[in-house]
Simulated assay, not measured.
Amino acid sequence: MGSGKKKKGKRDKPKKTCCKSKPRCKRCPIRMLAEGRLDPADAKEIFAKERNRKQAKKAHLVVPGD
């Protein structure tokens, strides 16, 4: 049985699309970009989709690769 603890070195991976929920979940790519926890290479791939790019601009964030 698991102890319920998270591993120390583990990082949360972002979702592939933003679910547009408020407040944003901790895996939301927009939230991770705003907090600086999103790798630039991952951000470029995720925000290549129009829906994600639109949500990021609505949140007044600079989208990498744009």
Score class of each variant (00 low, 15 high):
Thr17Asn: 10
Cys28Gly: 02
Pro23Tyr: 06
Leu61Thr: 08
Ile46Met: 02
Asp66Ser: 11
Pro14Arg: 07
Ala43Lys: 01
Ala59Arg: 04
Arg51Gly: 11
Cys25His: 10
Arg53Lys: 06
Ala48Gln: 12
Pro64Lys: 00
Ser3Tyr: 07
Lys8Gln: 12
Pro23His: 07
Asp66Gly: 11
Ala59Thr: 07
Lys57His: 07
Leu61Met: 01
Gln55Phe: 04
Arg51Pro: 05
Gly36Cys: 13
Gly65Ser: 10
Lys5Glu: 14
Asp12Ser: 09
Ala34Met: 05
Asp39Tyr: 03
Ser3Gly: 15
Lys16His: 08
Val62Ala: 10
Arg53Ser: 10
Lys54Cys: 06
Pro29Phe: 01
Asp12Thr: 13
Leu61Glu: 05
Asp66Met: 00
Glu50Met: 09
Cys28Tyr: 04
Ala59Met: 03
Gly36Thr: 06
Pro29Met: 02
Val63Glu: 12
Asp12Gln: 13
Cys19Ile: 04
Gly4Arg: 04
Gly36Asn: 07
Gly2Asp: 14
Lys7Ala: 13
Ala41Ser: 15
Arg31Glu: 07
Leu61Cys: 08
Ala56Leu: 01
Leu61Ser: 07
Lys5Phe: 03
Arg53Gln: 10
Gly9Ile: 01
Ala59Trp: 00
Pro29Trp: 01
Lys6Cys: 05
Val62Arg: 06
Gln55Thr: 09
Arg51Phe: 07
Ala59Lys: 02
Ala41Ile: 08
Lys15Ile: 03
Lys13Leu: 14
Arg11Val: 04
Asp39Gln: 05
Met32Val: 03
Ala43Thr: 15
Ala43Glu: 01
Ala41His: 04
Cys28Lys: 10
Asp42Phe: 04
Lys57Phe: 00
Gly36Ala: 10
Lys10Asn: 06
Val62Met: 06
Met32Cys: 12
Lys57Gln: 11
Ala34Thr: 11
Glu45Arg: 12
Gly65Glu: 05
Lys49Leu: 13
Lys57Leu: 03
Ala56Arg: 01
Met32Gly: 04
Gly65Trp: 00
Lys16Glu: 06
Lys44Met: 08
Lys10Glu: 05
Glu45Gly: 07
Lys22His: 14
Lys16Phe: 07
Gly65Lys: 00
Met32Pro: 09
Arg37Ile: 02
Ala56Val: 03
Lys16Thr: 09
Arg37Pro: 02
Leu33Ser: 14
Lys54Ser: 10
Pro29His: 03
Asp42Leu: 15
His60Arg: 09
Met32Ala: 04
Lys16Met: 10
Gly2Cys: 11
Cys25Ser: 03
Lys8Ala: 12
Asp42Ser: 15
Ser3Asp: 15
Pro40Tyr: 00
Cys25Tyr: 05
Gly36Ile: 02
Glu45Asp: 14
Lys7Asp: 03
Asp39His: 14
Arg11Gln: 15
Lys8Ser: 11
Leu33Pro: 14
Lys5Tyr: 05
Leu33Cys: 13
Gly9Ser: 12
Lys10Trp: 06
Gly2Gln: 11
Glu35Asp: 15
Lys22Gln: 15
Gly4Ile: 05
Pro40Val: 03
Ile30Tyr: 00
Lys26Val: 11
Leu38Cys: 08
Pro64Met: 00
Gln55Arg: 08
Pro64Ser: 13
Phe47Val: 10
Ala56Gln: 05
Gly65Leu: 02
Cys25Thr: 11
Ser21Cys: 11
His60Tyr: 02
Asp42Trp: 01
Lys5Ala: 12
Ile30Asn: 12
Leu38Ile: 09
Met32Ile: 06
Arg37Ser: 09
Ala41Gln: 11
His60Gly: 09
